[in-house]
């Protein structure tokens, strides 16, 4: 049964990818890539990767779609050039694909419990993590404890990406809010038309933020954690910006504050590492934080997840602000 679902979803994915290749309306491609990421996420759930599915749903479908839409809004909605040298490309692609498929012949069958990958590090994580880290969710314990240094790297990457986006496109046209809104066709009357939408979204935003907090602090026991919570929290702000305009959203939290929050998140993460060093442990060795190693682990994971969450949240909102401040400029 699981196999049937798996195969059907994979087939849908293939169809979607082909359609993305064929269609030249960029809007249609963006809609299809939204579907593509929904399909991916369901596939991840059917293959037991619930945390990954969580992230993919929040990031791929939500944020990526919004960013792509604001880009085509500011540039062009149509692909104008025909594919270049399609036959040669097809040849290259087929040859590469054939070599890769030949490579899979030696790979263990799908779901084989005797595959080498399941016999090296994973058994130790599965057996020992509950005694060593104390978290039910093994993905969380690997992410933030065993491989905490990796995650610090990822957080810094996200931070850098956010800084680069702001550095590249900035918040241009910030002074000319009135002009831009008139140009984009968003006036006060216009927003008043969507009365139902505004009320419903107003109702939802607190619930979304609350849910984000739940995901943040529940990461030890179920799917979730800093990355996902940050994105969900950011999507609450994106809702607000979409409905009430960029001006209002920037009055709630200004880009300057957001960049401070982002830096604070990374600092929290790094600070926990330094603290453990000072208290006589290794870098990010949470055992020394409290007398009881398990409590120390708990505290450490809590703090660094908080750091990750705040960084991801503020960077996502910053990126969204940067993109949507560009959106109406040209019209």
């Amino acid at each position: 049964m699981e196999l049937i679902i798996d195969i059907t979803l994979l087939t849908f994915l293939g169809l979607t990818a082909l359609a993305i290749n064929r269609i030249d309306k960029l809007f249609c491609i963006i809609m299809l890539s939204g579907i593509y990421s929904l399909l991916c996420a369901s596939l991840f759930v059917s293959m037991d990767a619930v945390d990954v599915a969580f992230t993919e749903a929040a990031v791929g479908t939500g944020i990526a779609t919004v960013l792509l839409l604001s880009t085509i809004g500011a540039t062009d909605t149509q692909q104008r050039s025909a594919p270049q040298r399609p036959l040669f490309a097809l040849l290259v692609v087929c040859a590469t694909g054939a070599i890769l498929v030949y490579g899979t012949m030696d790979m263990p069958a799908f779901g084989d419990p005797d595959a080498p990958i399941h016999h090296h590090v994973a058994p130790r994580y599965l057996e020992m993590s509950q005694q060593e880290v104390g978290s039910d969710n093994i993905v969380t314990s690997i992410l933030s404890s065993y491989r905490g240094f990796d995650t610090l790297g990822e957080t810094v990457v996200i931070f850098t990406a956010g800084l680069s986006v702001v550095g590249l496109i900035g918040f241009r046209g910030m002074q000319k809010f009135g002009d831009r809104q008139r140009a984009a066709g968003i006036t006060q009357d216009d927003m008043g038309k969507h009365l139902v939408l505004r009320i419903v979204i107003k109702m939802f935003i607190p619930l979304i933020l609350l849910f984000a907090l739940y995901v943040q602090f529940h990461g030890d026991f179920g799917p979730g954690g800093g990355f996902q919570a940050g994105v969900i929290f950011a999507s609450g702000f994106i809702f607000y910006t979409l409905m009430f305009g960029l001006d209002a959203a920037m009055r709630v939290v200004s880009p300057r504050t957001l960049s401070y929050i982002a830096a604070l998140g990374v600092l929290t993460y790094g600070g926990v590492g330094i603290t453990t060093l000072l208290m006589g442990g290794n870098f990010l060795d949470y055992n020394v934080l409290r007398p009881d190693p398990l409590q120390g682990q708990h505290l450490g994971i809590f703090l660094i997840e908080l750091g990750v969450g705040t960084t991801v949240f503020s960077i996502m909102v910053l990126i969204f602000f940067a993109f949507s401040s560009r959106k109406g400029l040209r019209q």
């Binding site: 779609t65 839409l69 066709g185 968003i186 849910f211 799917p223």
Partner: peptide, 28 residues
């Protein structure tokens, strides 16, 4: 059945992207 959080996030994000598209078309 305790992984329903994911379904909840999907519902949320789905709504978000629909609204985003509508705002994108609004008045254009």
């Amino acid at each position: 059945p305790d992984f329903l959080d994911i379904a909840l996030v999907y519902a949320l994000v789905n709504f978000l992207s629909t609204i985003a598209v509508l705002r994108f078309f609004e008045g254009r």
